[in-house]
């Protein structure tokens, strides 16, 4: 009979490559949830995920209202893609998402990053994406430790009980 051994999770390395509210928050909640459980967490933002740590953009994240089949109107009817194209609709839906989260005590992005750092989590930006979007260290929020290469990221991802999660 095969024996099953379980090793506790010791470290998570979370990569966030998207800049929508739901993708960024998925990464933040997972990282914060890890440090709350005593699990080491490293967050690496790349491509459009950089918006979450860029001072000018981090408080203006949106949820896409076009091409999102899971998006529904209040009440449960499907959200028509054509409606999502109208000016202001995406901003309205995004505002609603944020206010719903606030009710659950989910903080704004900047405060969430502070919480993760307070728990010992580390935040990094991807060098290639930063070069591509012409982003410098001073454009990024102070919680970001550094802009690093993928190789440096992998160097941090060693050790038994480590998982890499891509969002």
């Amino acid at each position: 009979m095969a024996t099953k051994e379980e090793y506790p999770l010791k470290k998570v390395c979370i990569i966030c490559a998207k800049g929508t509210i739901e993708d960024v928050y998925a990464a933040l909640i997972m990282a914060n949830g890890a440090v709350m459980e005593g699990i080491e967490a490293k967050l690496f933002f790349t491509f459009f995920g950089l918006d979450a740590i860029t001072i000018k953009q981090m408080n203006k994240l949106h949820t896409g209202t076009v091409g999102n089949p899971a998006l529904r109107m209040p009440g449960g009817l499907p959200f028509p893609t054509l409606l999502g194209m109208l000016p202001g609709v995406e901003a309205g839906v995004s505002f609603m998402m944020k206010s719903q989260m606030e009710k659950l005590d989910v903080p704004p992005v900047k405060e969430f990053l502070e919480m993760i750092v307070a728990g010992g989590g580390e935040i990094y930006a991807c060098k290639m994406a930063a070069d591509m979007f012409k982003i410098e260290k001073e454009d990024l929020t102070e919680e970001v430790i550094d802009i690093i290469t993928v190789g440096q990221f992998y160097e941090m991802a060693g050790g038994q009980g480590t998982q890499i999660i891509f969002i």
């Binding site: 440090v35 709350m36 459980e37 005593g38 502070e114 919480m115 307070a118 728990g119 010992g120």
Partner: peptide, 13 residues
């Protein structure tokens, strides 16, 4: 604050 909470109860505030 949250940092203090982590220091008071390490590994699971």
């Amino acid at each position: 604050d949250i940092k203090g909470l982590y220091q008071l109860f390490p590994g699971g505030p």
